[in-house]
Design a protein around this nucleic acid. Structure first.
Length: 679
DNA sequence: GGGTCACCAGTTTTT
DNA sequence: CTGGTGACCC
C-alpha cells in the first residue's frame, strides 16, 4: 500500500478526489506519475472494482511503468482487470471485438508508416501524379491530419490555393478504399473508427461507459481532436474523469495535439476540480527560476510557478561559441571538466537540440574524443527493411487480403516471379475483380503466364498456406517462427546483398531479435496467437527488443543525444541546451510559417526543466548551413532569463582571415547581447 | 539486378 | 553540404 502522509497537500488532495471531473495541472518534475498511481491504488482501497478503472497514456513506456507501479503498490491480483493502456491499444481492443460492424474482418492488419507509404505511392502512380517520395509523404501527412480531426474521406474539402490538398482530395478516398479492400487500417483509423463505432452504436457506447466508471488520462495536453472526442464518448456525461497534464509542456501541435483541450477542460466538463502541482522535486532553484521566467511570457496558459525547497544551486552557464564545431568542442570540455570535478558518469549528461541534424557535430566530436554516447531517435527498429520483410510475411499469413505486404514479399527473396509477371497478375486481379491472393491460387488462368513463374507462384501459395497452418498451433509459435526464418533463407539473402559482412551480420541479428520479441510475448500472454503477436509488434513497436530501445540505451553509461521533443519526461544531472539561436529555437518555420512562437517557448521550457543540477545554454555566432556560412543571432528566449541567474562566457576568439570583418561581426553580436541583457 | 548520375529538399514524432 | 530517390544503362 502507500502512505498518504508521504504526499504533499496538493498531491494528497488529488489522490483522494474520487468523484466528478478533476484537472490536475502537474508542473515539470512535480511527482505526477506518483500521484496517478497512488490515485489508482486509492480507488481500489476505497472499494472500486478494478474493472471500472481505465488509465490512458500516449506511450507504451508510460503505460507499462504505470501498470508496474500500481502492481507494486497494491499487488498483482488487486490490479487484475483494470485497463492501463495507450489510446491506440485501447482502440485495438475495442475494434477487435466490434470492427465487423464497420465492414472489416477481425483479422485486420494494422498499417505502419512504411505500409502506408507504399500504398500512397502506388495510388499516386495510378493517377499519374507520382513525383518522388516527398509528395507521398505530404499526402500521407494531410490524410493523417484529416483523420486526427475526424474528417472522413467524403468530408474532405480541398483548399483551392494549395496544390497538395487537391491531390489529397483524390487520394484520400482511394486510400481508404484500398485499406478496406486489404482488410487493413492505419494508426489513425484505430482512433477514428473507434469514435465512429461508439457514435453509430449507442449500445456500444453505453457498454463502455458503464464498464469504465473511473478514467484517467495522462499527458492530456497532448490530446488531439479524435482523442478528445473518444474521451467524451467514454465519459458519457456522468463520469469521474481525471486528466493530468501540463499546458506548458504542450509541444505536439504539429501532430494534431490541441492545447485548447487542457485550457478549456473546466469549461467542457463543468464542476471540475482543479489542482495545481507546483512543488518541484527535480531541479535546483536557479534552473526553476529560469524556467518560470521564460514560460511566463506565454499569454495563454494556466499560471503556475514552480518552486523547490532544495536551494538555488549553480548558476546557469551561457556559452557563446564561434560556430557549430566550437559549440561541440565546448560541450566536450565541460563534460570532461564536470565529470572529473564532480565525479559524474557519462550517463549523467544530455545534449539536447531542436533539430536532429544538429546531432552530427556532437557525434563527430564525441567519437573523436572517444566518449561513449547514445543517439536517441533516428530509425526505428520496425522501420528497418530486414524486419519489415519478416513482418510482411507474417501479416500476409495472418491476413492474405493485405496486398501491400503480399506484394512486398511475393518475390523476396527472389523466387522467379519477375516484375512483368507481377504486373500481369495485378492487371488480371483488377480486371476480373479477384483479390491478388485468389489470383495466385489460380495463376494458370492469367494470360501469358509462363510455366516456371506459375510453378513459383504455386510454391509461394503453398509456403504461406503451410505456415498458416503451423502458426495456428499456439504452443509452437516460437519454433514455427524459427523454422520459418530458416526455410525462407533470408539470412543468406542478406549476406548476398550486403557488401559489408559486419553490416549483414547486424541485420541478421536484428531479425533474430524478432524471436526474442516473440518469446517475451509468449511469456506475457495467456492465450497467444499470431494475430496477437502482430498487434503487439505494430502497436508496441520496439519495446522488448533489448539493444534497440530508448530505455535500455539510457541505461548505458553514455552521453545522451536527443531532440528536445524526445527529452520530455526525462531528467539528467547535467543538460546542454544547444543551438540557442533564432532560427533553431524558435525554429525559423515557427517564425515565418506557423507563427507559433509560444510552442517554441514551451519547447525551451521543456529543455530547461530536464536539468537537475546544472544547465548549460549554448549558441553559435555563425554556422554552416547548406554549405554556406551564415551569421546567427542569439535566441530571444535567452533575453527572457534574468541576468543574475546566468554566467556568460565566450569561447575562442573568431579566427577569420579578414580581421576587419571579424571585428565587425563580433561587435555587432556583442551589441546585440549587450542590449538583451541590458548592460 | 546493380551501379552511376542528376536532381531535390532540408523541424519536431508516437502509435 | 548531405541524404534520398528516380532515371538510365549495362
Amino acid at each position: 500500500m502507500f502512505d498518504l502522509n508521504s504526499l504533499n497537500p496538493q498531491q494528497r488532495e488529488a489522490v483522494t478526489h474520487n468523484k466528478g471531473s478533476l484537472l490536475l495541472l502537474a508542473g515539470a518534475g512535480s511527482g505526477k506519475t506518483r500521484v496517478i498511481t497512488c490515485r489508482i491504488a486509492h480507488l481500489r482501497q476505497q472499494g472500486v472494482p478494478a474493472e471500472q478503472i481505465l488509465a490512458v497514456t500516449f506511450t507504451n513506456k508510460a503505460a507499462r511503468e504505470m501498470a508496474e507501479r500500481v502492481q507494486e503498490m497494491i499487488g498483482r491480483s488487486s490490479a487484475k482487470g483494470m485497463v492501463i493502456a495507450t489510446f491506440h491499444s485501447l482502440c485495438v481492443r475495442i475494434l477487435k471485438t466490434h470492427i465487423n460492424r464497420l465492414g472489416f474482418k477481425k483479422n485486420f492488419s494494422i498499417y505502419a508508416a512504411a505500409d502506408q507509404q507504399r500504398l500512397v505511392r502506388d495510388l499516386l502512380r495510378e493517377i499519374g501524379a507520382e513525383n518522388g517520395s516527398s509528395d507521398a509523404d505530404q499526402v500521407l501527412w494531410r490524410i493523417s491530419s484529416a483523420k486526427n480531426h475526424l474528417i472522413f474521406p467524403d468530408q474532405y474539402q480541398p483548399d483551392g490555393r494549395d496544390p497538395i490538398s487537391s491531390l489529397v482530395a483524390t487520394i484520400y478516398p482511394r486510400y481508404q478504399k484500398s485499406l478496406k479492400a486489404f482488410n487493413a487500417v492505419d494508426f489513425d483509423d484505430l482512433l477514428m473508427f473507434t469514435v465512429q463505432l461508439l457514435e453509430q452504436y449507442p449500445d456500444l457506447q453505453k457498454h463502455y461507459c458503464e464498464r469504465f466508471q473511473y478514467q484517467m488520462v495522462d499527458e492530456y495536453q497532448d490530446t488531439n481532436p479524435v482523442q478528445y472526442r473518444l474521451l467524451k464518448l467514454l465519459a458519457g456525461g456522468h463520469s469521474n474523469l481525471c486528466v493530468v497534464g501540463d499546458d506548458d509542456q504542450s509541444i505536439y501541435a504539429f501532430r494534431g495535439a490541441d492545447i485548447a483541450n487542457i485550457l478549456d477542460f473546466e469549461h467542457d466538463f463543468p464542476d471540475t476540480k482543479v489542482i495545481k502541482l507546483e512543488q518541484n522535486y527535480r531541479s535546483t532553484g536557479n534552473i526553476l527560476a529560469a524556467a518560470n521566467a521564460v514560460i511566463k511570457n506565454n499569454q495563454k496558459r494556466k499560471e503556475k510557478v514552480l518552486w523547490t525547497d532544495s536551494g538555488a544551486g549553480a548558476k546557469i552557464e551561457y556559452l557563446l561559441c564561434e560556430d557549430g564545431e566550437d559549440e561541440a568542442r565546448q560541450v566536450m570540455e565541460k563534460i570532461h571538466a564536470e565529470k572529473y570535478r564532480r565525479n559524474l558518469n557519462y550517463g549523467d549528461f544530455a545534449i539536447l537540440y531542436r533539430t536532429n541534424s544538429q546531432s552530427r557535430a556532437f557525434e563527430e566530436q564525441l567519437r573523436y574524443e572517444n566518449i561513449p554516447y547514445v543517439l536517441i531517435g533516428g530509425q526505428q527498429f520496425f522501420d528497418r527493411k530486414e524486419i519489415k520483410d519478416v513482418v510482411a510475411y507474417l501479416k500476409t499469413i495472418q491476413n492474405p487480403a493485405d496486398e501491400v505486404n503480399l506484394l512486398r514479399i511475393l518475390n523476396y527473396p527472389k523466387r522467379g516471379i519477375g516484375e512483368s509477371s507481377i504486373d500481369r497478375i495485378i492487371r488480371y486481379s483488377s480486371d476480373k475483380n479477384i483479390s491478388l491472393w485468389n489470383v495466385l491460387q489460380q495463376v494458370n488462368q492469367v494470360p501469358e503466364m509462363n510455366d516456371r513463374t506459375a510453378t513459383a507462384c504455386g510454391s509461394f501459395v503453398d509456403l504461406i498456406q503451410r505456415y498458416r497452418k503451423h502458426f495456428k498451433q499456439p504452443l509452437r509459435l516460437l519454433e514455427t517462427l524459427q523454422e520459418f526464418l530458416i526455410e525462407l533463407k533470408l539470412a543468406a539473402e542478406i549476406y548476398r546483398q550486403e557488401k559489408d559482412p559486419q553490416v549483414a551480420k547486424r541485420r541478421v541479428e536484428n531479425q533474430e531479435e524478432l524471436l526474442n520479441s516473440m518469446s517475451v510475448y509468449l511469456e506475457r500472454t495467456p492465450q497467444p496467437d499470431l494475430a496477437g503477436f502482430l498487434d503487439r509488434i505494430s502497436l508496441f513497436d520496439d519495446e522488448n527488443l533489448g539493444k534497440n530501445d530508448k530505455e535500455s540505451k539510457l541505461k548505458l553509461d553514455a552521453v545522451t543525444l536527443m531532440s528536445l521533443h524526445s527529452s520530455k519526461g526525462l531528467e539528467f544531472p547535467v543538460v546542454f541546451l544547444t543551438g540557442m539561436e533564432e532560427g533553431f529555437l524558435p525554429h525559423k518555420k515557427s517564425i515565418y510559417e506557423t507563427f507559433d512562437i509560444d510552442e517554441e517557448r514551451r519547447l525551451c521550457y521543456v529543455g530547461i526543466t530536464r536539468a537537475k543540477q546544472q544547465l548549460f545554454l549554448l549558441g553559435a555566432q555563425q554556422r554552416r548551413k547548406y554549405g554556406k556560412l551564415e551569421q546567427r543571432e542569439a535566441s530571444r528566449f535567452l533575453s527572457e532569463i534574468p541576468e543574475d541567474l546566468l554566467q556568460k562566457s565566450t569561447g575562442e576568439k573568431p579566427r577569420s582571415s579578414n580581421p576587419d570583418e571579424e571585428a565587425a561581426s563580433a561587435n555587432s553580436f556583442f551589441d546585440n547581447i549587450g542590449q538583451m541583457f541590458g548592460d
